[in-house]
């Protein structure tokens, strides 16, 4: 088995699981639509595009958090972590597989959320869509690593937002400002770091 096929098998497992159990994606979808509805009422009428765009990023970050919190639930509840670690794959492949699966969920949620945002508020431009995709990469890479940390703790669901939100601040800055190069830089740095660090996070669990 090559590294790529390991990753593909792991990601496929998560997608298949979701396809059958339908636990994460529907809740993410409902959450993001509900959040956008709340933002509509939270914003005064005649608010500028920029303000609405800012709230889109808040909605996306929290929706992603919802998906990330669920990411390792199956592993934890079925004690799958030990089995995964025992399998003869590179540990970073576990991280990459999971990150790809979370990325797929997030993109699926955004395929609904972005048109909804465009319809509810002022429309979208290509730059925002590109920024969202780039931000998703950063969110999923860092979020998956922190998600694996958070499930080991007692506080679990409570811990992940605390760990992740300070890391997400640069993503929001890059996204709201439309600084694509900054998002690429963020993705590259933290994807590499997460890829290298994942082994240490799971090796002793």
């Amino acid at each position: 088995m090559t590294y790529a096929s390991d990753v593909a098998a792991l990601a496929r497992k998560d997608l298949l699981l979701e396809l059958r159990a339908k636990e994460t994606l529907p809740s993410m979808l409902l959450f993001v639509i509900a959040a956008l509805t709340i933002f509509h009422f939270a914003l005064p009428t005649g608010t500028s595009d920029v303000a609405a765009r800012g709230l889109l990023w808040a909605a996306l970050i929290f929706t992603a958090l919802l998906g990330l919190t669920r990411a390792f639930v199956a592993e934890r509840e079925q004690s799958m972590f030990d089995a995964l670690i025992l399998t003869p794959v590179d540990r970073s492949a576990i991280w990459l597989g999971k990150a790809i699966a979370v990325f797929a969920f997030l993109v699926a949620a955004e395929v609904v959320a972005l048109p909804a945002f465009a319809a509810f508020f002022h429309g979208l431009d290509g730059r925002t869509v590109a920024a969202v995709v780039l931000a998703d990469i950063g969110i999923c890479t860092v979020g998956t690593l922190f998600g694996a940390m958070a499930v080991a703790g007692r506080a679990r669901e409570l811990l992940l937002p605390l760990l992740f939100l300070p890391m997400a601040i640069p993503i929001v800055v890059g996204g709201v400002g439309g600084f694509l190069w900054f998002l690429v830089l963020y993705d590259a740095i933290f994807a590499l770091l997460s890829w290298a660090a994942f082994e240490y996070v799971v090796s002793e669990v």
């Binding site: 703790g153 760990l163 660090a197 996070v201």
Partner: peptide, 22 residues
């Protein structure tokens, strides 16, 4: 929060170290 939420041991030390590097 991370440190106090995980039981003391190598797993906690690993996670804390990774987080500190981030």
């Amino acid at each position: 929060m991370l440190r106090f939420s995980v039981d003391a041991g190598p797993a906690r030390a690993n996670m804390s170290a990774v987080y500190a590097l981030f």
